[in-house]
Design a protein around this nucleic acid. Sequence first.
DNA 1: TAGAAAGTGAACAGATCGGTTTATATTGTG
DNA 2: CACAATATAAACCGATCTGTTCACTTTCTA
Lengths: 205, 205
Amino acid sequence: MNDATPIVRKGRKFDQVLDGARDVFMVDGFEGASVDDIARAAGVSKATLYSYFPDKRLLFMEVANMECTRQSQSAVDFIDMNAAPRDVLCQAGKHFLRFITSKFGQQIFRICVAESDRFPEIGRAFYKSGPERMRAVMGEYFRAAGARGDLKIDDFTLAADQFGELCKADVWPRLMFGVIDTVSDEDIDRVVDNAVKTFLARYGP
Amino acid sequence: MNDATPIVRKGRKFDQVLDGARDVFMVDGFEGASVDDIARAAGVSKATLYSYFPDKRLLFMEVANMECTRQSQSAVDFIDMNAAPRDVLCQAGKHFLRFITSKFGQQIFRICVAESDRFPEIGRAFYKSGPERMRAVMGEYFRAAGARGDLKIDDFTLAADQFGELCKADVWPRLMFGVIDTVSDEDIDRVVDNAVKTFLARYGP
DNA sequence: TAGAAAGTGAACAGATCGGTTTATATTGTG
DNA sequence: CACAATATAAACCGATCTGTTCACTTTCTA
């Protein structure tokens, strides 16, 4: 399983291709993006592109996987495990909401939702590197906070999911469906503060 | 504005076209569906189809609008305004979650999310006939229950949104991204019961 | 510096798709 | 029955797209 797989490999222009592909896919989606456009954006000939990737679908998978893990890492690795729940939830919630309402966060969600029944691997990869990662980290914090008596939670993963969903209330769907196209900091503060309030009303000490 | 609009009209085979279009769009999405397939599924010639609808996009809009309003009406018009919060929330939540986790509910959400930046009208129409409708009805109930002292809510619409989002926790994203492909009644009960618990912990009497 | 490896540009094949046209057939109505 | 509206089937147009091929150039390396 090392040499016989003609799937992908690394070479001089590999990253160029990947970057161009990311840019075009993020603007046009999977179907909307043409390979010629990608090659042009990457500053690479189409023949070169096809020498790295066997087809468009595999190229898309590579891009999507890469972006998902890249984004989720930055969104999660800064939680202070010893801080008070109200502070941690506020900070994490705002970071989370800012990301999923960003142009980029919106688009990656859009593409994954749309394409995950044509390419089930896409959806699963996104879930694993996105929501599931958040779940794990939050669950870990909940356990620690529970041990200190700061929170009273029975089902850690469900609680983490509930908090994530609470942060989406009001503003995220309206953005997703084009009812609005900008989110103010005040909106983010308002929604997250309310999410924290509701969450702590149930799970607080 | 009555006769000069060459947009749509009603005729003998109008409903046939609409039904066929709905079936094909729901399986293949907008880009994936070909007009030839739709005409075949509708049992109608392509020329006939194009005599009713000027182009594919308008046909899709008509189908999407129709389905959104049809579904949201059935999902909302059965709330007992005088019942106790716990009962109303449980019932509404389960109805809601069952719908958005159904094959049909999933697909319409998928399409609207995917296509709502190419066709902003789609997203807005979906929001108006879906989430916004739910918001309005729940808000109305909250007001009534608040007047009776059964609930203490300051922001009705935000509370309604929070409840809707709480119902999605755990099971809906996993379904949406293909991590699972079936939802048991036990899962629905568990998630909704927990949503109600969290909601009432904050807004209960 | 010579030869191999990697990249280029452009054309090409094969296919699909949206939408139109045309000649013919079906249907409804006076 | 006759006439008009409506529907059909099939061919067709032009555009676009994925993926391949090929003759040629650039880049790396021994």
